[in-house]
Write a protein that binds this DNA or RNA. Structure first.
Lengths: 120, 120
DNA sequence: GCAAGTAGTTACCTAAAGGTAAGTAATGAG
DNA sequence: CTCATTACTTACCTTTAGGTAACTACTTGC
């Protein structure tokens, strides 16, 4: 598994490697809408994520240059995250994906409303 | 881990659950461009994927209604995969993502060409 | 009658991802 | 003097995903 970044045949693989992963696109989507969120705020918006994993995701996104970490050494530390210019470039893609998601969600709700007549 | 599809708070999570995963978006992207591919052809375009995992991804995409499986019981069986109408709705999103990917790829290549003068 | 070829399936095993829980720093509140 | 707070980090342990390899079916070619 140490030979995966070599065959960067197409850029698609590269970008997927950066934004894929369990909660990663969702974090980007949150930051894409709220423009700046603190660690705890992100955690609160993603029920079920652990601090360990969230930290890991944020570090990786930061390393990829997609998000910016703003650490303020106040008494209880204040850490805010926001998209970088590069990260912001994903906004339209994420928005497009969200539109599809919303559409499918509505379609599926309609079908559910018909209580499985579609079994025919 | 059997309590993850319940909190379908926002559709984004739902769609991410369907198209996320190691090679999934890439498979969709391939089918989005080639309109129909056989099992072996997909495998050949994704170096490093095993038959087991590819089968798994294809089954899940089929279960989500994003791809269509066309099995022809010829002597050596011929199985083709293509996007369903719903799967095709992802095309513009994937294309948008690819555009960003290509752009970043070019930017990164430029920077590499400058051999780290950007340290300033 | 045995190998080849497609598209898997299955069993088994290992590596990595993720969860939980506890610890940390610094300070203000009680 | 101790607790609470924020944003982690670390250790430990379990679960899961994924890899590898072998096996299947069915017919053709040799």
């Amino acid at each position: 598994m140490a030979a995966k970044e070599d065959h960067t045949q197409c850029p698609m693989e590269s970008i997927l490697g950066q934004i894929m992963g369990p909660w990663t696109p969702y974090i980007l989507w949150l930051l894409s809408n709220e423009n700046s969120l603190r660690f705890g705020e992100i955690a609160a918006r993603i029920p079920g994520i652990s601090a360990k994993v969230l930290t890991d995701r944020l570090r990786k996104l930061e390393a990829s240059g997609l998000i910016h970490r703003d650490y303020k050494p106040t008494v209880p530390p204040t850490v805010s995250y926001s998209l970088t210019a590069r990260g912001a470039e994903l906004h339209s893609v994420l928005q497009g994906l969200n539109e599809v998601a919303v559409r499918w969600d509505e379609e599926d709700k309609e079908k559910e409303g018909k209580t499985e007549i579609a079994a025919e």
